[in-house]
């Protein structure tokens, strides 16, 4: 059973519909026990970080997510909330990925809306069988930024980690990237935590394949 976390942020029905099309059992829930005992967890979302985070705190879901050891998939806002911070409403987020969420500059049409290419940068079971350069459907105004900024967008701990490893900690978790004015991460993975900026549930055949790959990992 796959749990789809319901935290009052947007179109959850479409994720459920997609899993049903794949013939996968799922439950839409905000019950902490159900989330922890599921074979896999999907964390969808649309809307504002500043509205979503308080909901997660109120329900205690924010404390549960880092404890999940089963496959976990953040979608769109769900990906952004896995970062450490969002410029949107200056929101402290869950910190699974050490990255900050930033708004696209005013020189780009916002939201970034439509079908865009995902260039795959490293192997991951999530993208098995998906050709490099496949198109997925995006709708978002914020993106996860892997580049260090002078402003304390990212935590001091991360900067230290970067310096000591000599590699960009966040960069290492990027599985796919997408170009909109510049490149931003569109698929990420850190251990059992996966995240996609696009909507696989709305991305036709390749989107379904990605969701199916995720479900396979949950068996």
């Amino acid at each position: 059973m796959i749990a789809i976390i319901d935290y009052k942020a947007g179109n959850i029905a479409s994720v459920k519909n997609a899993l049903e099309r794949l013939g996968r059992a799922c439950v839409v829930t905000s019950d902490l026990k159900k989330i922890l005992s599921a074979d896999g967890v999907i964390f969808p979302g649309q809307g504002r970080a500043g509205a979503a985070m308080p909901n997660l705190r109120k329900t205690g879901i924010d404390k549960v997510i880092p404890k999940i050891t089963k496959p976990f998939l953040g979608i769109c806002l769900g990906m952004q909330l896995l970062g450490s911070y969002s410029e949107e409403d200056q929101t402290k987020c869950l910190g699974i990925f050490q990255g900050a969420c930033r708004k696209f500059p005013p020189t780009l049409k916002t939201p970034h809306l439509g079908w865009n290419k995902v260039e795959l940068t490293q192997e991951s079971p999530l993208i098995a069988g998906i050709p490099d350069g496949s198109y997925f459907y995006f709708v978002h105004s914020y993106y996860v930024d892997p580049v260090r900024s002078k402003k304390p967008l990212v935590s001091a701990a991360l900067n230290k980690e970067r310096t000591s490893n000599g590699v960009d900690a966040l960069e290492a978790h990027i599985v796919g990237k997408t170009s909109y004015g510049f490149d931003f991460p569109s698929i990420m993975q850190k251990d059992n935590f996966f995240a996609v900026q696009f909507h696989p549930e709305k991305s036709g055949a390749q989107g379904l394949r990605l969701l199916n790959n995720f479900c396979e990992l949950c068996l």
Binding site: N116, Y135, Y180, F182
Partner: peptide, 11 residues
Amino acid sequence: RVAYRNNLTKR
């Protein structure tokens, strides 16, 4: 590094 890149398609 800063070349304008955009693969967004028209719908």
